[in-house]
Design a protein around this nucleic acid. Structure first.
Length: 917
RNA sequence: GCCCAGGUGGCGGAAUUGGUAGACGCGCACGACUCAAACUCGUGUUCCCCUGGAGUGCGGGUUCGAUUCCCGCCCUGGGCACCA
């Protein structure tokens, strides 16, 4: 048999398409295994070799688990709503659905070419109404829920309403924003509009006037993670801060549960840490400082260091703080207002870029220290943020570096309260030490002092223990067309959800994909954009992450018209066992999907709170860019070794124009772009040496390698093996097409093994090789270390290649071992060896330890830790015997050289070390 | 600035409850086949001042023995960033 990958790929891909051997069964007696890839956004550029890396790994695992007897769910779909298709629609007028469909076709062709074992009968697309109707359904559930802090669960809003009717907001422990409050009497007297206004402060999906990232060029609001350096992530347009009435989801209610849930997950430490940082839990206290000038009010602050209360020498409120206006004294008014004006003009970007400049103003007001009663001067400065804590802080310059810098700048006193360090020079931020100058806290360690301070505050009603989170509620409305319509209607301006029987609320046709003249979102252009009742519909759409927050559930029951997924099916499939995707989704998608799962679990819709048990973040495959030097201001291109210090520009050259020895194909370069058609070269007759550099793989860097091209030339199995062989899955690594010859050589060798087939029983060495390999493959599959699996297979094949014959059984067993990685060749071998049915469900060969036992044991013999020679002894020789063998060994004397043997260490089965000196 | 991950030949990388550093592959060199080239096969390939010595980012330490453990630094990648 000769190795002809193109024929094998076509033959077996057609067979799989016809026979559907990868369809997941339900119901099934088998144990389940759910392997999921992060589904792609189908971009117009198609896939490059970096994209399938994770898909190949998950496919190997899926195929392996089928051999191990599992019922495997391994689906694929498309995250199909998104900005690029909409941008294209704005430019060309082509409906985004058409663009998206075209791109999906292209993706599908590319994916099919690689031979994945996806169950395509379960494909989902987030942009299809039979899918997004359920996204809308979940939104409706969010709208009708609130978060009960006492039970730590989301509950139906009617329970909250009942509480309000009975007690008002008294004794209500509910996640909320703002300062909602009413009595039962007041609630009773409210009309429906007033009630809804109050309820909005509690709903899991709610509208609030929040400051958003408004991008005028795109006519839309962007999420924080879509804004990079004050510009839109896509397109790089300027972004400004603007208050706007926005739909949001109350993810902040789940901060603690999202934090606690991490402990149950098998994710990398780095991604868990990223999520912990994002949630940003701080433990401390709320402290109220009385404001004598406003007899009823107090200034509330949050601090993680209530132990340092006696070191407070001033306080700072954010320039946007609501009390700033009333607090400021007449004498200071001009200065404070000038500072506030100046601070408001600084954009978020400037404030971030410049954290060194210290600015602020004294308000002329004083607060009263809760313990000493001393007057504390009140300042304002933009280093205090309105969006975190209470927007006000107690400043302890001795033990906080920012407060310290502020105190130095404005000449404010610095009082040391935790011993150690010279606090006049630099703040002493350490969280351990002994309290001094602190009245009843003197002599206590920091941690004890924190406890004492909190208890004392609480007993005098001056404050209480408090946990603060950085995590903000997620803005959910987008001023865009190509997204899920939000199923809300307005009755006299009061939002209510569309009746469930009117879902899906289908995206309407519009005459243009732009905002209206008066700045309304594109949906406002739709004719008759109103409910059956004639009520106006919401015009914003959901963000990109809505559809991706629950798609893993729909795969379990993709066509169900009655519910998003059948409960029995969800009970069977349960958590995603292994989820593979890029770490760039660490704080976005992975946090939102966890939030939705926790919520759906709380309201009894799904069996598990955490959706993804084990997470693997595949690393990037980088491109190796090529650059040619061009003499500045000329069209002369110089070989990299002939620049000689002259001024040149480095220009990206498409990697297809690079010849084997890193020189430029000058003729094709001239044809590549019109601008280079009259290029001159130095030296004239070449070669023109290029510079190479590892960068991110992208079209603009002209270093993209297309998987189709690799498959066409070397076959899908070679691509699959090589991507895995490149290195550990999680690690970033550069692509080097030259290395492919290693794995194609391996596949050819495998094919040649078939000619050694003999019907004689397997020989001992042959079996030892086989079982060593089984052991290694099993071990690697549990850690997804497929790079070493490929090496191990190469070693086994090299060993077998030196034998004169191989048993049919060994060849069959090897075909199954190979099948997850190189399924096309494995199927062909399987068939050649006489099997009638496909290999995909063939049982995995059973490891037999007896074949691994060695007769002899080799000991490396070290002298003072340096290996000098080896001795061979029968397996299980007692250490004492090994030692005496070494003592009398002919080579020993030469290394001892007149010194004394102090000790001989024999590690059984491992090593011998002779200590001399 | 803080947090996380990592640093091993010319290159991708292998080996960590401490036990032969450099598996496997690329590249390179030489040889066989060939009129020749490609393919294929075989041999060699960490470095050096080569009977020996050095060596896993750098400097220390623990140990009979350290890529692996400890302390201090440097560098690269990623995340967060006036978060009280």
């Amino acid at each position: 048999m000769e190795y002809r990958p193109a024929e094998l790929d076509a033959k077996w891909q057609a067979r799989w398409k016809a026979e559907q051997p990868f369809a997941a069964a339900f119901p099934s007696e088998k144990p389940k295994f759910y392997v999921l890839d992060m589904f792609p956004y189908p971009s117009g550029a198609g896939l490059h070799v970096g994209h399938p890396l994770g898909y190949i790994a998950s496919d190997i695992l899926a195929r392996y688990m089928r051999h191990r007897g599992y019922n495997v769910l391994h689906p694929m779909g498309y995250d199909a709503f998104g900005l690029p298709a909409e941008q294209y629609a704005i430019q060309t007028g082509q409906h985004p659905a058409i663009t998206t469909e075209t791109n999906i076709q292209r993706y599908r062709e590319q994916l099919d070419r690689i031979g994945f074992s996806f169950d395509w009968s379960r494909e989902v697309r987030t942009c299809q109404a039979d899918y997004y109707g359920w996204t809308q359904w979940i939104f409706v559930q969010l709208f009708h829920s609130w978060f009960n802090v006492s039970t730590q669960k989301a509950e139906g809003i009617e329970r909250l309403v009942a509480h309000l009717a009975k007690n008002g907001t008294k004794d209500l422990h509910a996640a909320h924003h703002g300062e909602p409050s009413c009595t039962a009497q007041e609630w009773a007297n409210m009309d429906s509009k007033q009630r809804e206004e109050l309820l909005q402060h509690y709903r899991m999906a709610f509208r609030s006037d929040s400051v958003v990232n408004w991008c005028p060029a795109l006519g839309t609001v962007l999420a924080n993670d879509e804004v990079v350096d004050g510009r839109s992530e896509r397109g790089g347009h300027p972004v400004v801060q603007k208050p706007m009435l926005q739909w949001s989801l109350r993810i902040s209610a789940y901060a603690q549960k999202l934090l606690d849930g991490l402990d149950t997950l098998d994710w990398s430490d780095s991604i868990k840490e990223t999520q912990r940082n994002w949630i940003g839990r701080s433990q401390g206290a709320r402290v109220r400082f009385a404001l004598p000038s406003l007899s009823e009010s107090a200034l509330e602050v949050f601090t993680t260091r209530p132990d340092t209360l006696f070191g407070v020498t001033f306080m700072v409120v954010a320039p946007e703080h609501p009390l700033l206006d009333v607090l400021t004294s007449q004498a200071q008014r001009n200065e404070v207002m000038a500072y506030r004006e100046q601070a408001s003009r600084r954009s978020e970007r400037e404030r971030q870029a410049d954290t060194k400049t210290i600015g602020g103003a004294f308000t002329g007001a004083f607060a009263t220290h809760p313990f000493t009663g001393a007057p504390i001067p009140l300042w304002t400065s933009d280093y205090v943020l309105m969006g975190y804590g209470t927007g006000a802080i107690m400043a302890v310059p001795a033990h906080d570096s920012r407060d310290h810098a502020f105190a130095l700048h404005f000449g404010l006193p610095i009082v040391e309260v935790v011993a150690g360090g010279d606090v006049q020079v630099a703040s002493h931020d350490a969280k351990e030490g002994t309290l001094i100058h602190s009245d009843f806290l003197n002599g206590l360690e920091v941690s004890d002092a924190i406890e004492q301070a909190i208890q004392s505050l609480a007993s005098r009603n001056l404050g209480e223990r408090r946990i603060q989170y950085r995590l903000r509620d997620a803005v959910f409305g987008r001023q865009r067309y190509w997204g899920e319509p939000i199923p809300i209607v307005y009755r006299e301006g009061v939002p209510e959800t569309l009746p469930l029987d009117q879902l899906p609320l289908v995206l309407p046709t519009v005459d243009a994909y732009l905002p209206t003249e008066d700045g309304e979102p594109p949906l406002a252009r739709a004719q008759g954009w109103q409910s059956a009742e004639g009520l106006p519909l919401e015009t914003t759409t959901m963000p990109g992450w809505a559809g991706s927050s629950w798609y893993f559930l729909r795969y379990m029951d993709p066509q169900n018209p009655a519910r998003f997924a059948d409960r029995e099916k969800m009970d069977y499939w349960g958590q995603v066992d292994v989820y593979v995707g890029g770490s760039e989704h660490g704080t976005g998608h992975l946090l939102y999907a966890r939030f939705w799962s926790h919520f759906l679990h709380d309201i009894g819709c799904i069996p598990m709170a955490e959706p993804f048990k084990k997470l693997i973040n595949q690393g990037m495959i980088q491109g190796v860019s090529a650059f040619v030097h061009r003499l500045e201001g000329t069209q002369t291109f110089v070989s990299a070794d002939a620049v000689n210090g002259r001024k040149t520009q480095k220009i990206h050259v498409d990697v297809s124009l690079v010849l084997g020895d890193d020189t430029l194909n000058t003729q094709e370069f001239k044809d590549w772009m019109p601008a280079f058609s009259d290029a001159l070269f130095e030296p004239k007759e070449g070669p023109i040496l290029l510079e190479r550099e590892v960068e991110k793989m992208s079209k603009s860097k002209h270093n993209v390698i297309n998987p189709d091209a690799i498959c066409a030339e070397h076959g899908a199995d070679a691509l699959r093996l090589y991507e895995m062989f490149l290195g550990p899955l999680e690690q970033a690594k550069p692509w080097d097409t030259k290395g492919l010859s290693g794995v194609t050589g391996f596949l050819r060798k495998v094919t040649r093994l078939l000619s050694k087939r003999a019907d004689a029983p397997a020989d001992k060495g042959e079996l030892k090789t086989l079982h060593k390999l089984i052991e290694k493959v099993e071990k690697d599959m549990s850690t997804l270390s497929f790079n070493t699996t490929v090496s191990a297979m190469m070693i086994a094949v090299n060993e077998w290649s030196s034998l004169s014959q191989l048993s049919t059984q060994t060849l069959k067993d090897f075909a199954v071992l190979l099948s997850p990685l190189a399924p096309h060749l494995a199927e062909e071998m399987w068939e050649t060896l006489g099997e009638m049915h496909g290999i995909s469900q063939a049982p995995f060969p059973v490891l037999k330890a007896e074949y691994l036992v060695e007769d002899n044991q080799q000991y490396p013999v070290q002298f003072n830790g340096k290996t000098r020679f080896f001795v061979h002894v029968p397996q299980g020789t007692p250490p004492a015997e090994v030692e005496s063998l070494i003592r009398s060994h002919e080579k020993t004397e030469g290394y001892v050289e007149g010194k004394i043997i102090r000790k001989i260490i024999v590690v059984p089965g491992r090593i011998v070390n002779v200590v001399i000196g």
